[in-house]
Computed example of a mutant assay.
Amino acid sequence: MPPPPRPRAALAMGPAAAHGILDDDVLTALAEHTRLSPLPALDDLGTERARRILADTELLITGWDCPPLDEAVLAAAPRLRAVAHTAGSVRGHITEACWERGVEVSSAAAANALPVAEYTVAMILLSGKHVLETAREYAAARDRERLTPRPGTGNYRRRVGICSASLIGRRVIELLRPYDLEVRLYDPYITAEETAALGVRRAGLRQLFADSDVVSVHTPLLPATRGLVDRGLLAAMRQDATLINTSRGAVIDQDALTEAVSTGRIRAVLDVTEPESLPPRHPLWDCENALITPHIAGSLGNELRRLADLTVSEVARWARGEGFAHPVRRERLAFLA
């Protein structure tokens, strides 16, 4: 008996995503498992070309800037059964209409979690050694003999608080295991058994902020988490403690954070802000206790290939009838970024 025909697949994402994700090797791999529509990827699903391609598409491979898959798009794609997303969050394009139809959805969030976790671990260790402050003081003094270690410098048995057992939060915990650190976790949805399996101890939210030398925020931005890290939690932090945020800027009350950092009481490592690009005159730019990076913790450069490789693997599984290894479940959307 001949094998079943490969499913028809199409690409839907913005030009920048297509350029970063879809090199020749990736396209060849996808074509081994599907009958893949040719480039360019669809970035407007309302054009005549898009409607012609969507009419036969069973699997849509999406990326950043994919338009929403609303009722009109689904009407033009009557055979669509699955979406494999080459990035993390699917909130921007997977609509209620997709769930109502029963479209299977996969995400490369697991692949994107690793570089974010690596960035976080690096910043935790650098903050414990006071590397950034010491380097600045060393450059100013140009004299090693005049520098003495700051009080509390070092990473031995420092307490790290992880805010949220999200995919990234769990990966950070995993990567921290080789180090002599005490890791605490706040997550209102995790069970005692899950916490024990992660090898950490649970803490209440205020306790986590009050008792940790470093607090790393990995909470998805949801209506319930907007402004979660408020003035009271920031005030509870220890003198010279460090707050790391690689989630979304709006999870933190940024005005309160700016005040706390500007006084020199705490330090902050911010890969995200609210708004995403701070105004040029924002006081955080000139604050020596703040390190601000332009949302670089997630997949960049050659790390995009990890997203592509995971997606190819998901497409291959689905084409063989095995289902996705990294499915996105409708019932879990309330807890996902």
Rank of each mutant, 00 (worst) to 15 (best):
residue 212 S to Y: 10
residue 52 R to A: 15
residue 229 V to R: 00
residue 320 R to M: 13
residue 271 D to L: 08
residue 69 L to N: 00
residue 30 L to V: 05
residue 179 Y to H: 12
residue 14 G to W: 04
residue 228 L to E: 08
residue 275 P to I: 03
residue 128 G to R: 08
residue 213 D to A: 07
residue 272 V to D: 12
residue 281 R to M: 05
residue 320 R to C: 13
residue 318 W to T: 01
residue 5 P to Y: 06
residue 273 T to Q: 11
residue 97 A to N: 04
residue 29 A to E: 13
residue 218 H to D: 03
residue 182 E to I: 10
residue 278 L to W: 09
residue 9 A to L: 05
residue 132 L to V: 15
residue 199 G to F: 02
residue 225 T to I: 09
residue 217 V to E: 07
residue 241 A to G: 04
residue 52 R to H: 11
residue 311 T to G: 03
residue 283 P to E: 04
residue 120 T to N: 12
residue 6 R to C: 11
residue 67 P to R: 00
residue 161 G to W: 01
residue 5 P to C: 03
residue 13 M to P: 01
residue 89 S to I: 01
residue 142 R to S: 13
residue 307 L to S: 14
residue 277 S to Y: 12
residue 231 R to E: 15
residue 321 G to M: 10
residue 105 V to S: 03
residue 335 F to T: 03
residue 248 R to E: 02
residue 170 R to F: 04
residue 283 P to Y: 02
residue 290 A to I: 08
residue 300 L to M: 14
residue 134 T to A: 14
residue 311 T to D: 02
residue 106 S to V: 03
residue 196 A to W: 09
residue 156 Y to E: 14
residue 11 L to D: 02
residue 214 V to N: 00
residue 298 G to I: 03
residue 302 N to Q: 13
residue 201 R to L: 09
residue 318 W to R: 13
residue 51 R to F: 05
residue 227 G to Q: 01
residue 106 S to N: 08
residue 252 I to S: 09
residue 145 E to D: 15
residue 104 E to N: 04
residue 29 A to S: 13
residue 69 L to R: 00
residue 29 A to D: 14
residue 218 H to R: 08
residue 286 D to T: 15
residue 10 A to M: 10
residue 303 E to A: 15
residue 237 M to N: 01
residue 138 Y to S: 15
residue 142 R to I: 03
residue 170 R to A: 11
residue 251 V to M: 01
residue 36 L to F: 12
residue 121 V to D: 02
residue 237 M to A: 00
residue 102 G to T: 01
residue 203 A to E: 11
residue 197 A to L: 12
residue 48 E to G: 06
residue 224 A to H: 13
residue 168 I to D: 00
residue 329 R to W: 10
residue 173 I to M: 14
residue 179 Y to K: 00
residue 101 R to W: 14
residue 55 A to H: 12
residue 254 Q to S: 03
residue 211 D to M: 03
residue 206 R to P: 03
residue 55 A to S: 13
residue 305 R to D: 14
residue 308 A to G: 03
residue 10 A to Y: 07
residue 119 Y to I: 04
residue 282 H to D: 13
residue 304 L to V: 06
residue 279 P to G: 02
residue 18 A to V: 09
residue 47 T to M: 13
residue 333 L to F: 05
residue 320 R to F: 05
residue 22 L to Q: 09
residue 102 G to E: 12
residue 236 A to F: 05
residue 2 P to E: 08
residue 153 T to V: 15
residue 154 G to N: 11
residue 293 T to L: 09
residue 147 L to K: 04
residue 220 P to Y: 11
residue 46 G to F: 05
residue 39 L to R: 15
residue 2 P to C: 00
residue 104 E to V: 04
residue 94 I to D: 01
residue 77 A to L: 13
residue 259 E to C: 07
residue 10 A to R: 07
residue 69 L to D: 00
residue 4 P to M: 04
residue 23 D to K: 07
residue 323 G to W: 12
residue 155 N to V: 13
residue 260 A to P: 00
residue 82 A to M: 01
residue 18 A to F: 09
residue 53 I to D: 02
residue 16 A to N: 11
residue 128 G to K: 09
residue 23 D to Y: 07
residue 5 P to R: 07
residue 32 E to N: 10
residue 49 R to Y: 12
residue 334 A to N: 06
residue 179 Y to T: 00
residue 1 M to K: 12
residue 64 W to H: 12
residue 109 A to G: 10
residue 60 L to A: 08
residue 69 L to Q: 00
residue 172 V to S: 02
residue 117 A to D: 05
